[in-house]
Amino acid sequence: MSHEPAYLSKGPDAALVRLIKGLTHDVTNRRLIILLVALVAVFGLLIGERFFSQATVQSMAFQLPELGILSLAMMITLVSGGLNLAIISTANLCALTMAYIMTSHVPGAEGFMWAGWQIIAIFAGLAVAAVIGLLNGFVIAYLGVSPILTTLGTMTMVKGIAIGMTRGNVLSGLPEPIVFIGNGTVYGIPTAMLVFAAVASPIAIMLGRTPTGAATYMIGSNEKATRYSGIDTKRVILRVYLISSLLAAVAGLVMMARFNSANASYAESYLLVTILAAVLGGVDPMGGFGKIAGLVLSLIILQVISSAFNLLNFSQFLTLAIWGTILVAVMAVPNIRKRLGFAD
């Protein structure tokens, strides 16, 4: 048994030790940390001080949450052995719902109704997400349709609703507090980053510390055996897609806040990138494995590359290419090691 005493003791020191241990005892995370350090070193040498400036770091923190929250939404379905292709269209439809209420009902003058309608708008967006999530979950868990096909269908349908309702137009001009979510800072930390932290931590706790989370991992590897162990796997799967959809709605809110507008086809190129980010972060595309810590590391790596390329005046498309290359490289490492005869 290899339970170190520090792992189990309490207090802030122990928490730090636990965090470091948690990050490094996992092979994937170790690899990602090495990669991150190497990237920071190389970019530091190439770009110099500017790379470490407050502005650069802050701009990274502004950009990461969007992809971050969407990747969370993708990740939990991947862990459960599924996939949610509908996250982007869900985010957009929810953003449009919120934007519609905000642009049509929120009175100009600040006051009780002003705040009230904004809150109603956000809840309306979440409600739309809940409906989509429950539909996905129901079709996947209770009808037994494969997740990729189900969400391919709902993705197209949800986007179709968004286009049909808006005729492809942009809704813009949102109230001040909403814009603040996307562009404001609290003590120098971008609000969007705080939103990301506020959704990522409960998801981490859910996956790591609750019966639902434990069941999600088991289902991801073998749904049937988990059902035979007395777990209502259908309900867990329904819950996973509901949460995924709600996360997509939060991502929609952050996107809408950042652009100060909503549209049926924002951020579509992110769809496959979220899978890339999750898999790079150690999520097994076949299900059953993946932790939030790994995902966060992977998001930081992707963001560091993107920001550095920006500073180096490289095209953002080169960033895409490098992201893809890194994914292949990281996935290939265990196989190459095996071929060379290393035990992992």
Binding site: N222, G288, F289
Partner: peptide, 8 residues
């Protein structure tokens, strides 16, 4: 396949 989740 039913008794255990082998990978976990």
């Amino acid at each position: 396949t039913l008794g255990l989740v082998l990978e976990q």
